[in-house]
Amino acid sequence: MEPINIVKSVYAPLDRKNVDTDQIISKEFLKRIERTGFGQFLFYHWRFDKEGNEVADFVLNKPQYKDAEILIAQDNFGCGSSREHAPWAILDYGFRVVIAPSFADIFHNNCFKNGILPIKLTEAECDELLEQGLQEAQAIEVNLEAQTVTTPSKVYSFNIDPYYKEMLLNGWDEIALTFKYEDAIAAYEAKRVVFE
């Protein structure tokens, strides 16, 4: 996975709470057996109407947000299905950072496995950013090392679990790391209680 530290980009303000993974990537696009190619289907039923035409007032279809690598939304982002196709679609579309007041657990976990940085800011801070971003697209800088989000007028700081921070900064393969604990796993298996 790609390491991540500094991301400078405009952000797309998605002013919704409880964005579920069915909206992020709809079930008809889950049949691929690869990890790639899901970006074209991101938020499909919000981006396109029944006839397949772009919905003009959906945020990602507005030209000022086209190159956004940062997505900001409201509470409980990524709730529902465990489908990792959701972060795959977000990454493949071009986002590296998602900011929200809270995330659903499985989605949050899935981000760290794919080099996506999920940032929790307070609800008031997200509201402020959403409001500003909806008025005018603005470029901001996310710095994982420093744990900051910097806008032209303000610096926000965020917390992140140090274990996941290291993983993202280094782009580590978690499975390769776990293989270093082979002795501990084998020892656990030797004393594991199994009833016949």
Binding site: R35, S82, E84, P87, N109, N110, E174, I175, E189
Partner: peptide, 15 residues
């Protein structure tokens, strides 16, 4: 429930 990366992790390491 887990994502596919974790499915791979469990397949490889059972942890």
């Amino acid at each position: 429930g887990i994502g596919t990366s974790e499915v791979e992790h469990v397949l490889s390491t059972q942890t």
